[in-house]
Design a protein around this nucleic acid. Structure first.
Lengths: 166, 166
DNA sequence: CTAAGTGCAAATGTTTTGCAGAATC
DNA sequence: GATTCTGCAAAACATTTGCACTTAG
């Protein structure tokens, strides 16, 4: 189990990592929770609770999980550091993996909604410095840059001149 | 009205700034919208739609504004750059002024929910550099650092007597 | 004068919750 | 065997919308 592991969990599977988290909260790794974690980590796509619910609550086999359990488990997974939320330009938020995937942030296009991931060490260290200046214990951060992506910036040939001032 | 102003609106009041935005969308600055903007900018506190609704929809005088109009106007104000959203540790979001207030980011305490504002030039320029590397036109960003504030890190021996610090 | 906005109430969409029975440690 | 979970259905929320009336420009 989680004997003397400690920092060895770097290579642990998401399910293992989740189990360790649950142990600290005296909670259980049920079949349903395992199914949900597996489903979530079977793809790197961003997703909303409803996507998962579609995939898990409509089936009629032994891997069906109820809507409530999906919500309950997603909250736990976020708390466990397996998932984090990212904003979409439409004002909504989606989940993404926060485990087994390198730390990164996003450029978010307000035209087409595309998410561009990037990683930057400098930002991480500046953030760390600012945190310590405030005696703040940093656990994670979320940086989102809003604007327009290269594709959407290209002059749109001629669009029907809808706003030509009548 | 908005003749040749352009960049002069730096010092304009929130209501003026909003009016200029509305003009570009061929929309109107109604009495209700003006009341909402005034109410929002009468205090620097973070707030949720419901806070405003409490203050504006329950009154029985000429400054009453309906729930729908509050929602509709907040969305416009966000679009106009007067407001932006900030996450709270409880998974919710609140609005804060994004006009007439210096650009800043937040440290967010996951224990007590306190928001600590900070400003950092370096981050802004790194973000700008990353954006241009991706041919991304940066308009704004949001950086939130999650963790535990100094107060909450203190061993909880005795509850922090907050009134002692001044 | 007319396009745009308001208030209302109903509709929507999402997330949470109480509870009885089931599963886990 | 006690505690923790699950699934269900209902409840709770937060936000949006259709529509008749009102109003800004």
């Amino acid at each position: 189990m989680s004997d003397d592991i400690g920092s060895l969990d770097e290579g642990a599977s998401p399910v293992e990592k989740f189990r360790e988290f649950l142990v600290t909260k005296r909670q259980r790794l049920t079949r349903e929770r395992e199914i949900i974690v597996e489903e979530v980590f079977s793809s790197h796509e961003h997703f909303e609770p409803d996507d998962l619910i579609d995939r898990l609550s409509n089936r009629h086999d032994s891997r069906r999980v109820s809507r409530s359990s999906v919500y309950r488990t997603l909250a736990l997974m976020e708390e466990a550091g397996l998932l984090r939320k990212v904003a979409r330009p439409n004002g909504r938020e989606v989940y993404e993996h926060d485990y087994g995937y390198p730390q990164h942030d996003h450029l978010i296009c307000d035209q087409c909604g595309m998410l561009i991931e990037f990683h930057n060490e400098e930002i991480a260290s500046i953030v760390e410095r600012i945190a310590s200046e405030h005696a703040f214990l940093r656990k994670s951060h979320r940086l989102e840059v809003y604007g327009t992506c290269a594709d959407c910036r290209r002059p749109k040939q001629r669009r029907p001149r809808k706003l030509d001032l009548i």
